[in-house]
Design a binder for these strands. Structure first.
Length: 310
DNA sequence: AGTGTATCCTGCAGGC
DNA sequence: TGCCTGCAGGATACAC
């Protein structure tokens, strides 16, 4: 579910209430979302101070004054909700983990007093999400295993071109690989390909220089636009405050099978590969030219050529 | 290096 | 209304 824009929106909503607060009691309702043991999580969190809330790819990262980081991957249906103590709305229906927060109420550093401020609730009906507590070394290893942040200044068209080179993977699948670029999921992969006028099954390494520039611009424009809209709510996603995003109204291709392409009016097509749907416009995003040596599509020349014939 | 399949789960929409 | 099937924003392991 949540991709980079959704994680970013959640992070922005959590910063105010979380940064500077002390973690109170940790409750684990469904231990299967944890990487470790519930007691381990409680030991690592309780009594520590949250120093900053950030993001890496699709993951929400909560930094603690102990040097540990709580890394939350929301999977398909995860939500990270902030609930004030006096929130009258019904509690989340599928809490998996929650922890209370204590806020300073005054006094100097040695006599500071704290009061309960509310709860952070990790809600996840399908429980595909993962919560892990990483020390500095494990964090570095984990973060280095992930590709560049597509909205960071360092992610240039040149960087993208270099990463694409040599890959035979369809560009939609390539974009979903978190080791290549961090944070792109199935919605924004389809959207970026549409905006860049690149067929989702184009081999990544065969996108030319102009196509690479278009794709680079498209990835950033789509992600930044979705961040500005507060993310895309199709069903599960909510902000930290429980609100829906608005980018679903701006989608150009994803989920729009049979509807007109906003650019040319042709009906959007859905194709399934690598077990996931991709949506594209067959007119704006033409089939990639066949690789050199590939027989022309449609001609079935009977028996394949003998081995070594080429 | 790639692809397809299965797996982890629940909820929801659609067909009958 | 109930039952069934298929589908869903992710990540990973496996066989080929």
């Amino acid at each position: 579910m949540p991709e980079l824009p959704e994680a970013e929106t959640i992070v922005r909503g959590l910063r105010g209430p979380l940064e500077g607060a002390l973690v109170g009691t940790v409750r684990v309702i469904h231990a299967d979302v944890l990487d470790g043991e519930p007691a381990e999580l409680a030991r690592g969190l309780e009594g520590t101070r949250i120093t900053r809330v950030g993001r890496r790819g699709k993951n929400v990262v909560i930094g603690l004054d102990s040097g540990l980081r709580l890394v939350v991957n929301l999977g398909m249906s995860g939500r990270l909700l902030w609930r004030r103590r006096d929130d009258p709305s019904p509690p989340p229906s599928h809490p998996a983990v929650s922890f209370g927060l204590l806020r300073g109420t005054g006094g100097d550093a040695s006599s500071e007093t704290f009061a309960p401020g509310g709860d952070v609730v990790y809600h996840d009906p399908r429980r595909f999400g993962r919560i892990r507590l990483l020390g500095p070394g494990a964090w570095r290893t984990w973060s280095r295993g992930m590709g560049p942040e597509p909205l960071a200044p360092g992610f240039t068209a040149g960087v993208l071109a270099e990463a694409l080179a040599g890959s035979k993977s369809p560009i939609r699948s390539w974009l979903l690989d978190q080791r290549k670029v961090a944070g792109v999921g199935n919605i924004y992969a389809s959207e970026a390909c549409h905006l860049a006028r690149i067929h989702p099954q184009t081999p990544a390494g065969r996108i030319d220089a102009d196509g690479t520039r278009r794709l680079h611009r498209a990835v950033r424009k789509v992600l930044a636009g979705a961040v500005a809209a507060g993310g895309t709510t199709l069903r599960d996603y909510r902000t930290a405050e429980g609100w829906e995003g608005a980018y679903q109204y701006a989608l150009r291709a994803y989920g729009r099978e049979g509807l007109p392409c906003p650019r040319c009016g042709e009906a959007i097509v859905r194709v399934v590969f690598s077990n996931r749907s991709a949506f594209y416009c067959p007119r704006c995003q033409p089939e990639p030219a066949p690789a050199p040596g590939t027989p022309v599509s449609g001609s079935r020349p009977g028996p394949p050529p003998p081995r070594g014939a080429s």
